[in-house]
Write a protein that binds this DNA or RNA. Structure first.
Length: 107
DNA sequence: CGTGAGCGA
């Protein structure tokens, strides 16, 4: 059930205080929140590609107003890169705001 | 609201 490597289970005992709610299907998709309303996918990918290889980066914007909703999704090539980027980029300063990185619910 | 918890087309 663990998506991490057998050597990277250190994060497992840290967050899995109750249960794994993110490891239902995918562990490579990360939910990025706390972003600025002006942050683009380029800023996210440039910041996350330093910790792992990015497959796809998407910023959720309003389909009517076109303004950013303030959050997005990042797809990594492996769970290892996603986990490392999660621990390293979670709560960091990006675009002048604190980013909140978490695993995506859907897959 | 020029905002601030959340989970997309």
């Amino acid at each position: 059930m663990q998506c991490w490597s057998r050597r990277s289970v250190s994060l497992c005992s840290t967050v899995s205080l109750g249960r794994w709610q993110w490891t239902r299907h995918s562990c490579t998709k990360l939910f990025v929140g706390g972003l600025s309303y002006d942050t683009n996918e380029t800023v996210l990918k440039d910041a996350f590609r330093q910790h792992g290889e990015i497959i796809e980066v998407k910023i959720i914007c309003d389909h009517v107003s076109g303004k950013s909703q303030g959050y997005g999704f990042v797809q990594f090539t492996s769970e290892s890169a996603a986990s490392m980027a999660l621990k390293e980029m979670n709560g960091q300063f990006l675009d002048g705001r604190h980013v909140r990185v978490c695993f995506a619910h859907k897959g």
